[in-house]
Amino acid sequence: MSNTVAIDLPGYAKVVYRYGRPVVLIVALLMSIPGEVHLAEVAGWDHVQVWALGTLNVAWGMPVCVSVYAACSAVIADVAKRLSLPNRKSAVAGAVAALALALTAQDVSHWIKADYMGTSWVLVGAVSSIPPLVAFHMLHMAAAPESTESVVEIEDPADEEGGDDVAKRPGRKGKPGRPGLSEAEVKKAIENLKTAGTEVTPENLGQILNRAPRTARRYLAMIERAERKARAEQKAATEPQQSGALQLSI
């Protein structure tokens, strides 16, 4: 079993960690806007008649379809990977493609401005296809279920460990392995993480339990179900007492 150590960062490091990242992200997105707007204008996304709204310069929407899309894809890919969502492979592929798209858009725009290259039907077609492709991929990633895979499918953490009971059950195939941990052992590990000031995540819990993150995620779900059940039983036990006290006072 590995030990965890809480690290107290100095004040300036905390400021950089908390506020530096959003500042860098915002500035990077702002600096990306001119190149992406210019590229959209080259492809014909400039002034479009939009019903009663009049003529709008829709080229200003290209930064949302490129840089903001790349940032969203990176976040969605990270969340999907951490929670083992079914669309995690698509999210990761989309994040990589979005980053490549953002880099290419900046390069091509500045090449055109510097007269290193000119526009062509291939470039116009490629830029014109960006908004529908981005919309399709965002809708695809948004189709993931609200609950995570670990919460929906979990039955018993011992199944993941491959314990002896798995091999003995009829209709189940498995090899004997390490026995599953008890609820008390998992709670003790969680308390150790909290005492050390470490965030209780599947990765950190798996490290202290010497188990895979996926197995640790199942243990966390098991503890959460047990706590919900205990709260429900406590609520059910106190409600009759409160009702009797109310009748007595009347």
Results as ranks from 00 to 15, higher is better:
T4D: 15
V5K: 14
V5F: 09
I7C: 06
G11N: 03
A13F: 08
K14W: 11
Y19A: 03
G20D: 08
R21T: 03
V23S: 08
I26W: 04
I26Y: 00
V27A: 05
L29S: 05
M31Y: 10
S32K: 07
I33D: 02
G35S: 10
V37H: 03
H38Q: 11
L39A: 03
E41D: 09
G44T: 11
W45R: 13
Q49E: 12
Q49M: 10
V50C: 12
A52D: 11
G61S: 04
P63R: 14
V64P: 06
V68E: 05
Y69F: 15
Y69R: 10
A71L: 11
A74G: 15
V75W: 09
A77T: 13
V79H: 12
K81Y: 03
K81C: 06
R82S: 08
L83Q: 13
L85E: 02
N87P: 14
K89F: 15
G94V: 02
A95N: 07
A95I: 10
V96E: 09
A100M: 13
L101M: 13
A102P: 01
Q106F: 08
D107F: 01
V108K: 12
V108G: 03
S109E: 09
W111S: 02
W111M: 03
K113A: 05
K113I: 05
Y116E: 05
Y116W: 10
G118H: 04
T119D: 05
S120R: 07
V122K: 03
V122Q: 05
S129Q: 13
P132I: 02
V134M: 04
V134P: 01
F136P: 05
H137V: 06
H140V: 08
A143G: 14
A144L: 01
E149K: 01
E149M: 04
V151K: 10
V152G: 05
V152K: 06
I154Q: 00
E155I: 06
D156M: 06
P157D: 03
P157H: 05
A158E: 15
E160P: 01
G162K: 08
G163S: 14
G163E: 15
D164F: 03
D165E: 14
K168M: 02
G171C: 09
K173A: 02
G177E: 12
P179K: 11
G180F: 00
G180T: 05
G180V: 04
S182V: 05
S182G: 11
E183V: 15
K187E: 15
K187C: 06
K188A: 09
I190N: 02
E191C: 01
L193T: 11
K194T: 10
K194F: 04
A196V: 01
T198M: 14
G206I: 04
Q207A: 11
R211I: 04
P213K: 13
A216F: 06
L220N: 02
A226G: 09
E227Y: 01
R228A: 10
A232D: 12
Q234I: 09
T238S: 06
T238H: 03
Q241V: 15
A245K: 14
L248R: 15
L248H: 07
S249I: 08
